[in-house]
Design a protein around this nucleic acid. Structure first.
Lengths: 235, 235
DNA sequence: CGCGATCTTGAACACGGTCAACTGACGTGG
DNA sequence: CCACGTCAGTTGACCGTGTTCAAGATCGCG
């Protein structure tokens, strides 16, 4: 728990700030504690006070928002290295719920601590603004996709986007885990489980993807790109 | 241009920071200059360097994002008092385009100036984080609406949401200008112009809204709420 | 007055949702 | 060890919402 772990922290969004790096003095750590979440366990829930920001070391989470009277919609998936709970900087009340999709390890960073640090290190404050601005941009792109793309475009774009995110973490753009249920993918893309299943079945039939226990492999990235951009269709 | 204007600045998102307040020393102003935009003119465009943040004094803008190969989608509408161009804090390149829907007056705030000020005034930095976090939350809610709501729910929710935003600015929740074309509303809600027109026609036929040259009046807020939440339907 | 842009309305179609049946994997208990 | 229940996923048939295409209506403005 003291000292940075090789690999694990390399692509963490909080790396520029994290005190753990290279020190063994627990008292100097930015991270209050390491939390472990079991599959299905909530990291935070909408409506609860937002006191901390979380950096995910391992595992994936889904972040969802519920509107009165409809099923919760997943606004984003959190991969290792991502932050969750940045809405702590809003009204100090979480507007979203984050649930672990598998066993997860997260660093809990008290918001007051982070804010204090921001006052002393302008670069950190700027970094945080950058992360926030990036999240806004991502949300806008997602909304645009929901508003304008067909089911198969959304699914293809989703897979390609995941690949991109994994490469940014030192993984492969074409082979990565897919720890989501069909329903969860649908809740993220504004589709039903059945539609997601149908599209994935077609992609498999075309051998553009292969699904296995370890995740998914994108075998025809270019074809998927054509599909996502609308140049090609899944007749 | 020096000194705050009564009313105009009262509900500005930058009010806690704005140097104009109560001073006549032009050199102490946070605002670099006041820009006037004609209808249709762009405040900034996607891909261009993001050097400033803008506070809108009067007029409304549309902020849109384009994905390759499809028509631009409007991610939000900017009302007087709102900020535009907060994505300046991301990669220093605008990811969106902002276009005036009518004659607009905006305060241009250089990003470097704002950042400098943030270092000296932690409260301002926190305020900015709050604005950013709020924008994330709004974008998530919008995405959830696009993913899960029917056409009439979206339109009703859009009108109610606009009313809310106008009340926050000291206006009326039930009578406000509607300077958007059908097509623009559709581009925002993920619908076609025709569908927006049909829904609005039905709302007019039910006398739940009245449209005039001055804008729109919501005559049956409760009915609209029921529609937006899905309890009622526009048969 | 006449042109163009916006808005409206209608009719046919297609995409994705809904409902339902079936499969296969996994875990529990007889 | 197999029977059973459960749950995720698959696949099919049907249907409804919203899109598409097309024809007018309305309004602003030269």
């Amino acid at each position: 728990m003291n000292g940075v772990e090789a690999g694990l922290c390399d692509s963490c969004a909080m790396r520029p700030a994290c005190y753990m790096r290279g020190t063994h003095r627990a008292v100097r750590t930015l991270v209050e504690r390491l939390r472990t979440l079991a599959r299905g366990e909530a990291l935070f829930e909408a409506g609860s006070p937002a006191l901390s920001v979380f950096a995910v070391r391992s595992g994936t989470l889904k972040v969802s928002i519920s509107r009165a009277g409809c099923t919760p919609r997943i606004v984003r998936f959190v991969l290792p290295g991502d932050l969750a709970g940045l809405d702590a900087f809003g009204d100090r009340i979480h507007s979203t719920t984050a649930v672990a999709l598998e066993e997860c390890e997260v660093c809990e960073i008290p918001a007051w601590h982070l804010e204090l640090l921001c006052q002393m290190r302008p670069a950190l404050a700027a970094h945080l603004r950058r992360l926030l601005a990036h999240e806004v941009g991502d949300a806008y792109l997602h909304a645009a996709a929901l508003a304008g793309l067909s089911a198969s475009q959304r699914v293809a774009g989703f897979l390609l986007g995941l690949g991109q995110r994994w490469t940014a973490r030192g993984g492969s753009a074409s082979r990565f885990p897919l720890p989501f249920e069909r329903r969860e993918i649908g809740d993220h893309l504004g589709l039903t489980m059945e539609t997601v299943s149908r599209v994935l079945s077609l992609l498999r039939a075309r051998a553009w993807i292969v699904e296995g226990p370890a995740g998914v492999e994108l075998c025809a990235i270019e074809a998927l790109r054509g599909l996502a951009s609308g140049e090609a269709k899944l007749a």
